[in-house]
Nucleic acid binder design. Sequence first.
DNA 1: TATTGTTATACTCTATAACTATA
DNA 2: TATAGTTATAGAGTATAACAATA
Lengths: 170, 170
Amino acid sequence: MSSTGVCEGQPAGRGPGSAFLLAQLGAHAAYRFAERVAALDLTPPQVGLLRAVAADPGRSQQELAQNLGTPPTRLVGLVDGLEQRGVLQRRRNPADRRLYAVYLTDAGNTLLTEIGRVARAHEDAMLAALDDTQRAQLYTLLARIAADQHLTAGVHPGYRTLSPTDTKPA
Amino acid sequence: MSSTGVCEGQPAGRGPGSAFLLAQLGAHAAYRFAERVAALDLTPPQVGLLRAVAADPGRSQQELAQNLGTPPTRLVGLVDGLEQRGVLQRRRNPADRRLYAVYLTDAGNTLLTEIGRVARAHEDAMLAALDDTQRAQLYTLLARIAADQHLTAGVHPGYRTLSPTDTKPA
DNA sequence: TATTGTTATACTCTATAACTATA
DNA sequence: TATAGTTATAGAGTATAACAATA
């Protein structure tokens, strides 16, 4: 079990509190998801990029960086790796040759389908303790909080980075 | 807004899914909490240690490390900092002089009270969108999942580390 | 001169391994 | 020799700053 470390503790006197449970479960969910996509030889940041490209193909690296909330420099290596792997493609914009437009390849689309499968399995495993009614309840509550907290669309900041080598099926 | 980076994206076709929302909200909660305790000049790992000591005073660093799931080496610096600050205290065990027993000082207990206040404010802010009934519902659902996933007591692995300098009120 | 993408650099955090002292 | 704690080292990951090409 590759732990990250010393952290938090429940609010002294009474039990944990929902905010703490949220943080604890969120870290757990992120970790488990990282394990699963590692089987596809992917890290969460790579998955995020693939999905961002799929959501709106042809954007420049600058646009992607802004959308994902990351410094543009970081996208370089990310795109590099996925391009060498043949799932992403950079195309020069003839009108403005400074820009690259980033697209998924066919292999990229196939990979994305795999990712979808993995995500569904992950979702199922995470919610195993709840019946359908409870799952719907939970979703409603979480969505309400997310909206209230102004969380952007589907962008997740701060997934714990889990190196693929660290990931031999726990 | 000091972001961590490119990550994830919602399950392509349909909406986000609860597992993703959980991860997203969890990261958000951890981040916000880190901001709040930074006002007390503390990091989440420090808070975790303080609470662990409070929960069972007098344990050795080895025991604390095991309880928190972190390498013992890491506790050294953590205890050092909090001891210099006067909120923790190391006492030699006369029976076995290799061991230290770690205790809270009076200042440490005061600080812990502050932390409790901060944690309650955090909880309130996170759940602002929900009424009392909904809060109770959410808590029940989260606790059920946490139990099912075998999450240890009140230990949170993987809080995003937020350096106090990074923390000028967002 | 401004902007896209890139490379180079530095910094933070954490873990692993080597060392000291007690037993 | 084994164990508690410490120090020293190295690694992963990220951000900041300097650079080249294009506009």
